[in-house]
Structure formats: structure tokens, C-alpha cells
Simulated scan of single mutants.
Amino acid sequence: MLLTVSGPPGSGKSTNAAALAERFGLAHVSGGDIFRELADERGYTPVEFNELAEEDEQIDRDLDRRLREIALERDDLLLESRLAGWLAADHADIKIWLDAPRTVRAERIADREDKPVEVARQETTRRENSEALRYKEYYNIDIADLTIYDITCNTARWGPKSMQKTLATAVESYDYDTDEGKEPVEGVVYDF
């Protein structure tokens, strides 16, 4: 089984992806972890590294190419990244998009990163705007287009355990005999 979990910063991607991977015995690959490691190795914050990526498209292309290669190599994987659903659109069994209002996400990020909520909100807004521009320019992907996802959820509506139970139930009831929705998305440039 190949699952993808995508969503903006603070949406609960990592928490839910880790729980799903554990529940279903899947390897868990996080694009965010890889991106933060690359930023740290080069002495940047994730926000600064995002802005650097606006000037150096090779940063995104290398990360996205690697994530797509991983997705193509394995069938026992949960791939978590902002673009995971797009990177594996043509062969993922279930593509999940998680979201929450920006105020909720900023509070989560502020708590996780021990910073003021307003700073987290401003950084998150800058980061999302930066990424949206790059995804459109590089791959012709409109990150706001959620039509490729099988499941979309507002994680602010449920606690982590309830959300994980809901997602697990959806995965368990999935009909693996159908291949509908596993074709390349029209207009997207699969040049990762």
C-alpha cells in the first residue's frame, strides 16, 4: 500500500502520518524532515531556506525528485510532504490532504517551535506563499487544487486520536481492486 499525506505547515501531517505508518506497518518518509535537515546543514532556518529555494530552483527539484523516486521504488510506504499527493498521483492508493485554519496552525507551530504565535503566523504565511509560487512555476501545480485527493480533512475539528481513527477507518475500508484515479494529472509537468 502506498499512502500520501499532504497539507500546509501545522495541519497535523506529521502526527497523523506517523500514526498511520505505524498502524499499517509502512515505512514513513517525511519531505519536511528532509527539507529541515538540508536547511540546517546549510545554516538556514526553514523559512530562509524556502526563500533561498525561490532563487535556486534546484533545491526543490532535488528534494521532489528524490521523494518521487522513493514513492516509485516502494509499495509499503507512507510519503508525507506538501506535494506528496502530486508526486505519487499516478500510483498512490490513497492520497490524503489535511488542513486547519491558519490561526490554529500558527498556534500549533508556535507551541512546537517555542515562538510567539504572531511570528509563527507571519512565517507560515510567507512560507506558504513562497511554496505556492514555486510549485506553480516549476510543475504547473496549483497547491490549492484539492481535486486529486481522496480524503480532505479539517484537523481542527477533531483531536489527534479521533482524526487518526477516522483516517485509519478510511484506509481500512478502501477498495484496492479499483485503479480509478491512478493516472497522471493533466497539465502537471512531471519533471521533478
Rank of each mutant, 00 (worst) to 15 (best):
P8W: 12
Y174V: 04
M1Y: 05
V188H: 11
P9Y: 02
Y190M: 08
D99S: 13
D56C: 09
A100M: 03
L78K: 11
L77A: 04
E172H: 09
A92F: 08
P46C: 11
S6E: 01
A84I: 00
L72H: 09
R66C: 15
P9Q: 11
E41R: 13
E54N: 14
N140A: 12
V47Y: 14
G7M: 00
N129K: 13
A170G: 05
E55I: 07
R66I: 13
Y44T: 06
E22F: 03
T166W: 15
W158P: 03
V47M: 14
G12W: 00
R65H: 11
L146V: 12
D62H: 08
V189F: 13
E57L: 14
F24H: 06
E107V: 05
L78G: 06
N50A: 06
R74M: 12
I148W: 07
L52Q: 07
L26P: 12
S30W: 01
S6N: 01
P116M: 07
M1D: 05
D76F: 06
Y135E: 15
D93L: 00
L26H: 13
P46R: 14
V104R: 01
N154C: 04
E113H: 00
A144M: 12
Y190W: 05
D177M: 13
L78P: 09
D99C: 05
G7L: 00
G31R: 06
E22D: 12
E128Q: 13
P46G: 13
N129C: 06
I109V: 15
D142S: 09
G159M: 07
D75A: 08
E80N: 01
E22R: 05
L20E: 05
L67N: 01
L3A: 03
S130P: 11
K161V: 15
D90G: 15
L146H: 04
L2I: 07
A84N: 03
M163S: 10
A110K: 10
L26N: 11
E128Y: 07
P8S: 15
T15R: 00
D175W: 11
T152I: 12
T178H: 09
S130A: 14
D177T: 11
D56S: 11
E80C: 00
F192N: 12
R157C: 08
R42A: 04
A53E: 03
W158G: 01
D56G: 03
D40F: 10
R74P: 03
D114I: 09
G85P: 05
T147R: 15
M163D: 07
R61L: 13
E118W: 08
K13Y: 00
P46A: 09
D33R: 11
L26R: 09
G85F: 01
G25N: 04
V104Q: 03
A88G: 08
T103S: 15
L83N: 01
D150W: 04
D191L: 03
V117W: 08
G43Y: 04
R121S: 15
L3R: 01
T4D: 03
A144R: 13
D142H: 09
A92T: 12
T45W: 12
D150V: 08
D145V: 09
D99G: 05
L78V: 04
D150C: 10
L87C: 09
D179E: 15
T103Y: 10
M1A: 11
Q58G: 14
H91A: 07
G25D: 02
L20V: 06
V119C: 06
Y149R: 05
A27W: 13
S81G: 10
K161C: 10
G31L: 00
E48H: 08
